[in-house]
Structure formats: C-alpha cells, structure tokens
C-alpha cells in the first residue's frame, strides 16, 4: 500500500530532518512511528500527505502509494492521489476552522472527495458521527468548533477522516492533546474503525503504551533515522537497539517507584 524508500529531507540551510528512511505499510495494517520530539516522526506523515512545512524540502528517496510515485506527480495529480489519504491531526482545536460550523466543514470535504450532493454529504456526515459514537450528532453538526469539547472535536475529525473511505490515514499524535480517560476512548475508536473499514494507518506517537495497544509493526526513530523496525510484539519483548530500550526505560511505570 505505502512504500517509503530511502527518503531524506532537509530544512533550509541543509539541516537534515530525515535520513534515508525506509518503511512500508500493508493494506489494513497499523504501523507506528515512535521517537522523541524532533525525531522526524511527524515529518514522515507530512511528507506522505504532501504538507511539509515550506522550509523543509525532500532531497532524496521515493514515496509509493497505491502504485503511484507521490513525489513525481503534478500538483493536480497529487491532489487526485490525496483523495485516498486522510489526516487525523494532533490538535483537534486548530484543525477545525473556528468560523465555520461542523456541518459545513465535514460536507465540504465529502462533496469534494466523494462527489456527493449537499444532501448526501449531510447524510454521510451524520452517519459517520453516529459511527464515532458522538452524542446528539444532529446538534453537533450545527455547532462551531469552540462549542465542543476536545474529545468531541477529535471524534469529529476522526469521523471526517474515515468518512472519505481513504486507503491510508496518517494519525499524527491523535491522543496527545486529550486527557487520559478520553485518550483511551479515542484510541479504541480509531482501532475499531480501522478494523471495520480495513484502513491502513500510519500512527505517529511518542507513547509506547499506545503503540502496544494499536500498532502491528513499529519504526523507532532517532534524529531522523530509523534505528529499529519490527513487529510490535518483538519490540516490546526484545528491543534490539539500545535507544529503544532507553525509550522503554523512560516510560513512566505506576507499579514501581521511579529509579
């Protein structure tokens, strides 16, 4: 489904952001990208979606998605290919336009991507809001983003992402901005929808606990390089690289006092 080969990217001034990153995600698979801040995990997701910051350029490598080379496409063909991709962003507040109602924002994307009529898009939005188990979905559609709680906003964004029936979703730390109880619900929601829709997910996170719950395979990043790549059970039981072990050691444990 998604193959990234030897992808390198640099910020203006030649600072390396990604160094020869290779990974692949099969259809319906959840692949985790783990690392500390600045390791380049979000940049990989952004490169796939074509929304790298202006200052960052791809210097080498290829991204193949669904049989097409994403980096070689013209802007309009790139937009076409983007219809099979979706993003679940980190900050559910800034990812919704503050001056537009939820209904307008959801149906815009649906009409554009699926070519639905206004009424059909509205119906699809409502159906998806039901599916993300939001309370009073008709009411939510009429609200502005600031009138919803963080968890509800994230549910709206998840609904929008899955509503377009994408083949791959990039989830960029989708639970980081939420409190712990909501995190758990959102994580379960993403996993359930991902399974029932058979959607591949590139799951960016710094939380190894999250990785263990949702991912099938994991890439561990440090300084823009992949230091370890393995199925999730192997990583947890036998972390091969010293950095991965250090990451596990840094995860807070509640069953024993900090060292």
């Amino acid at each position: 489904m998604l193959q990234i080969a030897q992808l390198s990217a640099a910020a203006r001034g030649g600072v390396g952001v990604l160094r020869a990153v290779s990974l692949s995600v099969a259809a319906g698979e959840v692949h985790g990208l783990v690392g500390t801040s600045g390791a380049g995990k979000s940049m990989i997701g952004r490169a796939v979606l074509g929304i790298l910051p202006d200052a960052v350029r791809i210097t080498a490598g290829r991204i193949r998605f669904d049989g097409r080379d994403l980096l070689g496409l013209s802007p309009s063909a790139r937009r076409q290919a983007g219809r099979d991709l979706a993003l679940i962003p980190q900050d559910p507040l800034s990812a919704l336009n503050p001056s537009r109602r939820i209904a307008a924002q959801m149906t815009d994307v649906l009409r554009h991507r699926l070519g639905l009529s206004a009424a059909a898009a509205q119906a699809r939005a409502l159906e998806m809001l039901h599916e993300v188990r939001i309370r009073e979905p008709d009411n939510v559609l009429r609200r502005y983003p600031h009138e919803l709680s963080g968890g509800m906003r994230q549910r709206v964004l998840i609904a929008t992402a899955f509503a377009c029936r994408p083949k791959l979703i990039v989830a960029d730390e989708p639970t980081t901005a939420l409190d712990v109880t909501v995190q758990k619900q959102i994580l379960r929601l993403i996993r359930d929808l991902q399974r029932s829709h058979a959607t591949a997910v590139l799951f960016v996170t710094h939380d190894l606990g999250v990785v263990a719950k949702i991912c099938g395979s994991v890439s561990v990043l440090r300084g823009g390089e992949i230091v370890e790549q393995a199925p999730v059970a192997d990583i947890i039981n036998h972390p091969a690289h010293a950095y991965t072990r250090a990451l596990f050691a840094a995860t807070p444990r509640y069953d024993r006092p900090p060292p």
Binding site: L85, L87, N97
Partner: peptide, 28 residues
C-alpha cells in the same frame, strides 16, 4: 493553522482553500 494543512491533504485546490477556509476568518 492545521485546518489549512488538513484541507491541502484533503486535495482542495488553492482557490477553494482561499475562499472557504481563509476568507471566512478574515471577513470579521
């Protein structure tokens, strides 16, 4: 803002983004 990135990722063209995402926030 992230919603502009989301719109770009969703494949909306620059004109649609300017009209639907940016302009409503500029109007007030």
């Amino acid at each position: 803002m992230d919603y502009i990135d989301a719109a770009v990722a969703a494949g909306l063209g620059p004109r649609a983004i300017l009209w639907r995402e940016v302009l409503p926030n500029i109007l007030p």
